[in-house]
């Protein structure tokens, strides 16, 4: 599951850079105001220089280097998030967004999980840990977006189009999922749960669900 790992690394890096730049600018402003105050006390006039060509060029170059560095970091991170060779998924789940809840269909098994998303009736997306899972994302009405904050990943769900991404979940747990694209009146309630369980437990769950219900069930 690269997203979370990649995100935390790059977010930290960029936050630090941003913090340093911010601090430098504040320090520069403070220095300027102090010097100006001293000048005023001495009665010295304002400086007249309109250009410092060498400094301008050097600064521009420094900015270009910083930008190039950040571009390389960004490309590399995106490359890790979406490697040319995605790990071959061992299973696929069709996630369908609709106004205003979710439907999860486990491809190859007659198992579909859904809910109403009203009054806490949020559907649970159960996934196994440690195996690459492909999510096929689509909508049946307006544009929604599938977001699990814990995964540090989200993707749009379009009508008439399938967006795919592969994710490998390293450990078990239960995390909230949200809709991340304005989709109408109950957008704010369109949550779901992502529940990650060990492989064996997942197989048992899937088998039980396939046997119990005909096509769809809770």
């Amino acid at each position: 599951m690269p997203f979370r790992h990649v995100y935390s690394g790059i977010f930290l890096l960029e936050s630090v850079i941003a913090g340093v730049v911010f601090g430098l600018v504040l320090a520069a402003m403070a220095a300027v105001m102090l010097v100006s105050w001293r000048k005023r006390r001495r009665g010295a006039p304002a400086a007249r220089r309109e250009h410092l060509r060498l400094l301008e060029a050097a600064f521009g170059l420094a900015l270009a280097v910083m930008a190039a560095f950040l571009v390389v970091v960004s490309f590399s991170a995106n490359g890790q998030d979406f490697p040319r060779q995605d790990p071959k998924p061992t299973m696929r789940v069709q996630v369908t967004a609709f106004q205003w809840c979710w439907r999860f269909r486990y491809v190859g098994q007659p198992v579909t999980v859904t809910g109403s998303c009203a009054d806490g009736d949020y559907p649970v997306l159960v996934l196994p840990s440690g195996r690459p899972v492909e999510i096929d994302l689509a909508s049946v009405d307006v544009v929604h977006a599938f977001w699990v904050p814990y995964l540090d990943y989200k993707m749009d769900a379009f009508p008439g189009h399938v967006d795919r991404f592969t994710v490998t979940l390293p450990r078990a747990g239960r995390w909230i999922g949200r809709c991340a694209q304005l989709c109408g009146l109950y957008h704010y309630e369109m949550d779901f749960w992502l529940q990650v369980v060990p492989q064996a437990q997942f197989d048992r769950w899937l088998h039980a669900r396939a046997g119990a219900a005909g096509v769809s069930g809770r």
Partner: peptide
């Protein structure tokens, strides 16, 4: 000067897809 800078720097962060996937539309 400093206030716009906060917006600008976070904008660069959002210009990185790997960050945007996490925090966009939040």
């Amino acid at each position: 000067i400093p206030q716009f800078l906060i917006g600008g720097l976070t904008g660069i962060m959002l210009g990185t897809p790997s960050v945007d996937y996490a925090v966009n539309n939040s």
